[in-house]
Every structure is written in structure tokens, then in C-alpha cells.
Design a protein around this nucleic acid. Structure first.
Lengths: 233, 233
DNA sequence: ACAAAAGTGTTGCGTGTACACCCATGT
DNA sequence: ACATGGGTGTACACGCAACACTTTTGT
């Protein structure tokens, strides 16, 4: 790096860059949000999204992956950048911008324990307490984004276990869209997309009759995306 | 700010935060991009988006507005955050993340002169030279975003002069979508939205017969948005 | 007169939506 | 036997896409 470069840059301000994760999960028919109690000032003890400062030698996305891994133990999580929150006064400590990312994960019992060990908790979206700083705004924005994405991509599959029933898929969509749907039309629509593989097994947890389990067919999904299809339900 | 806060923050890395603007304009039936020659190292002399470091006491959005104002003289420009580019190695100088924002502006002759005075140039998207760092990626992402937004909001209006003809509006959409459209269907669709006010005047620039000029009806547009309408064309 | 762009309607098809009943099974 | 959730088919409405000709006027 030559001297000129250093000189020019050094006349500029540096700041902290953080990343915050809006982690959505789906459990017991409800959309849930992972939050935890801040262990550092400012706002120590208040509820917050999980996040971290981005380190000098790591990509912003890596930082988010690192945090998520620490807290949930999960590695291959779907996540996507939401946007940067860059108001000058958003952090009372020192100028700090945050790049918010939302993640979709499949909640299972193994995760639940890890999550608790790190002092984090799953809250139903509507029951979540107030969060520090602009985190409530991040959640609101992420929810809107989730709704939009679900409309055009079968994002919902990220939140379900590998094998799932159509009624489960429907209740996930109902949780995301916050409205009820007609089960006949829902079924017709998702099946017409040909991205579900029906299995022979049934899931008998939620009914006596049992519902057929399905798997997501990733190969057909790729084809669907290429042909410009739209997942509006 | 208490001591604990300073101590905790001070163990963390600070970095430079920049904002880069992908500025789209529409002129002579073509979608154009505003770029300029970098005047600082690294990559001095190469083509670049317009951008700036974010200062300590300004919001990220303000920084973008400031840059745009400097270069184009324009104040009330539509713009929207695209996303943050945060790869650790994206800037050879020193760790620097950039928050990209795209802007839509109406090109007119007044702007053109100001823009030239600042060493910036309007390029047709497909003719634009290679840009420094990850700026080409930003442009690509912004274009995709523009296409998506246009599908759901009449974003196109930001790019046209206050008075415009329907064929002009159509050629804008054709430039954004990169495909031709049927003029009968296009006209039917935009008129059905009831967001255009027909004027008595005609524009005779592009034809002998002349085409009626229209204005955008912002009041009706607000209603349309609230009712959840979708601008798919 | 002719070239060049503006403007105008109709029809078919596909997709979303509304809606009611039977099925399988555990208790 | 009955309660509970799973699974199936039809009819109508609406919006999108395809398609051709007339109008206006400057040269």
C-alpha cells in the first residue's frame, strides 16, 4: 500500500461495523424469533437480537455465520442480508453501523438446548419484548421482507424439517402472511408447482388419520426458478 | 458515555464505511448510468461509481444525498439502499465496507452541464466501461433490483420528466425489462391504474401526429399502493 | 402520396377463488 | 359412533396476451 493511499484514507473517519441477525424459526405452528439478553453495555440486560462486531479480516457475511454458529451450533443456515442501519445516532456508545441479516432455521430439540445454553430464547413474534436500539425496526423490516420473499420463492422450506406435511406447510405460510388460506386451493397450488416429492410415510402427530409426508425436490425447484416462475400463494 | 462502554468497544476493530451510488437516468430512449473517473488512489484514473466515505456525524443515507447533490446539483432525488458490500478484501487500501444505494433521476440539460463539470459522464448501461473494485457487481445487482421494483411500483415515473407521453413511458419500461411490449396492452394497463392525468398538450418531438402528454397523479398513486395493487406490466 | 408514429377493441385462455363433502382413524 | 383433521373437484370471474387497422400530419 503506497503512502498516498494511507494519507488519503487517514483523513477519513473509521467506525464500528456490526452485524445483527434476525433469526426466524417455525415451531408448534408458530413463527418464532430468537433473541437474547445483552451482556454488554450499553443497554446491558435488555433484550436484543444476536449480533457481533465485524472483525477486520472477516467478510460481513462470515461474521453473521460465525454468530449464528456460536449460538445455535448450526452451520448451513439460510440467511440473507436485509439492509444496513446507518443512522448517526443509532448507537449511544460510539458511531456504529449495523448490517442486519435475517436467517431461517429449522428448530429442533438439539438446537433448543444449545440456544438456551447461550442465554438465547425463542419468542413467538407477537410475544417478543421490546428490543434495544433499532432492533424492533429490524424485525419489522425483516418480517416484511420475509413475506415478500415467500411470495416469489419457496423460502418456507428453509423453516420446515426435511420431511413435512402439506398442512404443516400451509400453517407456515399462514404464519408468515398472517391470514388463513383455503386448504383446497393451497394444496392445488403447491402440488401444481411440482417441487414436492410425496413419500410413502405418514405423519400421525397432528391427526388420527395421518398426513402424507413430502420432501422438497430441489432439482425441480431450480428448473422452476430458471423458467421465471412465481410462487404467489 | 461511561468507562465500561469505552473499554468494551475499544477492544474491537473500526473500519471505513463508504457509500456508493448507482445513479440511473433515462435519456433519448435509453437507460443510462452515471459514472466518473476516480481521482484518488487506489485505482486512480479508473472508472467508478460516485461515492464517498461516510462521516462520523452523518447518517449513511445523508452521505449518499450529499454526494448526489455535489455532483448533480439535485436535491430531492429518489433513492433507496441496495445492500452493503462487506467482503474483507474488497478495498485494497484498508478495510472498507460500502453501502450501495441506487438513485433514479430525470436527466435534463441543466444537470448534464453540472455533471460534466464534476468530471462525471452518462453512459448507456451496455456501453459502460469496466468499473473499479466491486462496482460492476453493484450495477448488476441494482439493475435486477430496478426490474423487480418496477414490477410492483411505478418507479419508472421517477425517471421521466414531469410531462411525458405514453410511448415514452413504454420505452422506459422496455429499457428496464429489456424486451418489447405490445403498445395496445401497455396503454390499456397503465390507463387502467388511473394514476395518469391526461393533459391537453401534445408532444411533437417524436412523431408528426404528436402524442398526448400525461402527468403522474401522486394522490391516486398513494391510494393504489394502500390497496395493495401490483404494477406488473 | 407516403412514411412514421399514435391511438383504438375483441377474443380466448389460464389462473385464482369460492365453495361442500367424504375419508381414515383413534378414542 | 363420533370427533378430528386430511384429502378431493367444480364453476365462475378476471386479467393477460395475442392480434390489425385507422388516424394524423410533416415532408
Amino acid at each position: 500500500m503506497d503512502k498516498q493511499v494511507i494519507d488519503y484514507y487517514s483523513t477519513k473517519d473509521k467506525m464500528y461495523v456490526a452485524t445483527d441477525c434476525i433469526v426466524f424459526g417455525f415451531d408448534e405452528g408458530e413463527l418464532k424469533l430468537l433473541i437474547f439478553k445483552r451482556r454488554v453495555e450499553p443497554n446491558k440486560g435488555e433484550w436484543s437480537l444476536i449480533g457481533s462486531f465485524v472483525e477486520l479480516e472477516e467478510d460481513v457475511d462470515e461474521a453473521a455465520r460465525r454468530v449464528l454458529k456460536e449460538i445455535t451450533g448450526l452451520d448451513n443456515v439460510f440467511f440473507k442480508q436485509l439492509k444496513a442501519y446507518g443512522k448517526a445516532d443509532r448507537d449511544k456508545g460510539y458511531r456504529c453501523i449495523s448490517i442486519a441479516q435475517y436467517a431461517l432455521i429449522r428448530i429442533d430439540d438439539y438446537d433448543k438446548k444449545l440456544v438456551e445454553k447461550h442465554g438465547a430464547f425463542w419468542y413467538r413474534i407477537q410475544d417478543a419484548p421490546q428490543l434495544v436500539m433499532d432492533h424492533d425496526e429490524m424485525v419489522k423490516d425483516a418480517l416484511k421482507e420475509l413475506e415478500n420473499k415467500a411470495r416469489h420463492q419457496p423460502i418456507g422450506f428453509e423453516l420446515l424439517p426435511q420431511k413435512f406435511t402439506i398442512p404443516q406447510l400451509q400453517s407456515l405460510y399462514e404464519a408468515i402472511y398472517q391470514r388463513e388460506m383455503d386448504s383446497r386451493n393451497f394444496r392445488k397450488k403447491v402440488l401444481s408447482l411440482k417441487v414436492l416429492k410425496k413419500l410413502e410415510e405418514k405423519d400421525k402427530v397432528s391427526s388420527k388419520r395421518g398426513a402424507y409426508l413430502y420432501k422438497f425436490d430441489y432439482k425441480n425447484y431450480q428448473k422452476l426458478l430458471l423458467s421465471g416462475y412465481n410462487f404467489e400463494i
